[in-house]
Design a protein around this nucleic acid. Structure first.
Lengths: 243, 243
DNA sequence: CCCCGATTACTCGTAGACGAGTATACGGCC
DNA sequence: GGCCGTATACTCGTCTACGAGTAATCGGGG
């Protein structure tokens, strides 16, 4: 699922959406995007914008309407959405809405290498995250309430979604903090011992080598320990999916 | 905040983490990543891997240990983590954990252009999403339970996080579905009317033009309507942040 | 003992992302 | 009416991402 699009950039989606109402030239598209707050999530990258528009044109999803200069400004090319472009926009939207995609949030990447930090530091950093999260959530809630007075809720659903998800994150972090402070989390003792003594706990030694040395190579075995690693190994991560 | 890293790719983080335990050559790094299930989130891209390793070397974060050929395989270069590389790994992890970053989930992008679809279709697609989400969640829960029998929970936190967030998403989607089916969502009637008649509801006309035509250009005004847009305008989106 | 498919280990070329730079025009102020 | 700051509207070149290809080696079957 999720066939790759001729133009796969999400900026392209925004561009297509901006052209539904009427033809525009690239700079105006950027202006509209900015006015609609799109630039908050993805600050507008000029290079990308023009590349994306050019690619959309190459694939027949938009077409140049006119290339007029008024005053004696640099030439502006106005683009309109083609039939195919509209179809692509609709189809893409359908897919984005209907098919949940595994993504890789940056925080998740951070969690997966959390083991390189000492448990106490991890605790401290998670507290910081929670604090910042609270602040952001308050600001977002306020902004949302403000907008809700101006426009119908239907215009605000992505913001509401974002808020809901981030609230869940905050809740989860709070839970993890609890388990870390009370010491209830299984494996915590070993993690701490390991960072204090520098020795990999025997229970974990086997886990760390998973997938290494597919063709058991004597040279590699010999070379091991040549560089004395003064730091405990990263916590191993493993897949979430079966098979 | 979130200064850009010398090597900003998350794959680089995985590479650094894989080198903490001991030096490895790129292909072995890939093997370890695969064994740890990293390839589920981000299928391993060979080109990127070698580029990333080369960049890490260029910036002094990893260093070649030896470049031996055994048997007469193509030459393998073994890399180790440098002092600087370890520092970068730790610092980067700190940042990823402590600083919540605004991201742009693909679903959110989809929601922001949901208006291009008719409300009834949107409803149907959201139901599909919820179904798929339920299936994925069940599979993930099962996999997690399976793993929990083999390794301590501390190795599973990213998976638990992912699960929590996706559960929140499912809940939110369920809520939205409710509001759409009962018709409780403000703006729904206009949205429906607009897709049925093709006419932009008067309450929304002004909103759609936000940010357009900064220098009120007579040519642009004239050109409007030249292309009769047979499709209702996209729902406008606006920022989540104040200021 | 030789062949064949799988595995190992990369290389290279292209397409895309992006930032810094450029050049013009408008409007307000003295 | 001339000057300056800001907004307009891009262009260009570099750096990055990535997939398709390549080539060697290993192990097992006939």
């Amino acid at each position: 699922m999720a066939k790759r699009r001729r133009v796969g950039n999400l900026l392209a989606l925004a561009v297509l959406a901006a052209l539904v109402e009427r033809p525009r030239h690239p700079y105006e598209i950027a202006a509209v995007l900015r006015a609609r707050g799109k630039d908050q999530d993805m600050p507008i990258k000029w290079g990308s914008l023009y590349t994306v528009v050019a690619n959309l044109e190459r694939h027949g999803l938009v077409a140049a309407v006119e290339s007029a200069r008024q005053g004696r400004r640099p030439e502006r090319t106005v683009y309109r959405l083609t039939e195919a472009g509209h179809a692509e926009l609709v189809d893409w939207t359908r897919e984005l809405v209907a098919v949940p995609e595994r993504e890789q949030p940056r925080f998740e990447a951070g969690l997966s290498v959390l083991g390189v930090l000492a448990p106490d530091e991890a605790l401290d950093l998670l507290r910081q995250r929670l604090d910042r999260l609270k602040g952001q959530l308050a600001a977002q809630r306020a902004a949302l309430a403000g907008h809700a007075r101006e426009v119908p809720r239907i215009f605000l659903i992505e913001a509401e979604y974002d808020l809901a998800v981030r609230e869940a994150e905050a809740t989860w972090v709070r839970g993890l903090l609890d388990e870390l402070t009370t010491g209830a989390l299984p494996g915590l003792a070993e993690w701490r011992a390991w960072h204090e003594t520098g020795a990999v706990p025997p229970e974990w030694a086997a886990l760390a080598e998973r997938g290494a040395e597919p063709h058991r190579d004597p040279a590699a075995l010999a070379e091991r320990g040549a560089e004395p690693h003064r730091d405990p190994a990263a916590l191993a991560e493993r897949g979430t999916e079966p098979h």
